[in-house]
Amino acid sequence: MTMYRVLIIEDDFRVADINRQFIDQADGFAVVGICHTASEALVFLEQQEVLPDLVLLDAYIPDVKGLELLWELRRRFRTLDIVMVTAAKEVETIQEALRGGVFDYLIKPIESSRMMQMLKRFRDERVLMGRHTELDQSVLDRALIRNEYSQVEGSRLPKGIDPLTLERVKGGLDARVAQTASSLAQQTGVSRSTARRYLEFLVAQGEVKAELDYGEVGRPERRYSLG
Rank of each mutant, 00 (worst) to 15 (best):
K65A: 12
G130Y: 10
S182C: 08
L144D: 05
A87K: 04
I82K: 10
E111A: 08
D63V: 01
S193C: 03
A210D: 00
R131L: 14
A59I: 10
I161C: 07
A204E: 15
L51R: 06
M129F: 13
E111C: 03
L56H: 05
I110E: 01
M118L: 09
L54F: 06
R20M: 11
G215W: 05
M3Y: 07
R75S: 13
D17S: 10
V217A: 07
Q186T: 08
Y224R: 01
L98M: 13
Q151S: 14
Q187N: 06
L173S: 12
L69A: 02
F13Q: 12
L135A: 00
A178V: 03
D104W: 04
L106Q: 04
G100S: 05
L106I: 06
N19G: 14
G28Q: 04
K120P: 00
S183T: 15
G218H: 01
L202C: 07
Q137M: 10
M129N: 06
V203F: 04
P109C: 00
S183Q: 15
V190R: 08
A41W: 04
D17Y: 09
E68F: 02
A16R: 00
Q117H: 14
D124W: 06
D136Y: 09
F103E: 09
G215S: 07
E211T: 13
M84S: 08
G171I: 11
R14I: 14
R146T: 12
E111R: 12
L42P: 01
L157D: 07
V83T: 13
E68A: 13
S138Q: 15
Q95P: 00
S191W: 01
G66W: 09
L57C: 03
P52C: 12
L56G: 03
P62C: 10
Y60R: 12
D124K: 11
D136E: 14
Y198D: 03
S193K: 10
E153Y: 15
V208A: 05
I110N: 07
I107Y: 06
L140P: 01
G172Y: 07
E216Q: 13
G154F: 04
E49F: 05
I110F: 06
L119I: 11
E10V: 00
R142S: 14
R223D: 09
R14T: 15
K209I: 05
R196L: 10
A204S: 09
V83D: 03
S138E: 14
L7G: 07
Y214R: 15
R20K: 13
L56E: 02
I23W: 08
L144Q: 14
A185L: 01
V203E: 02
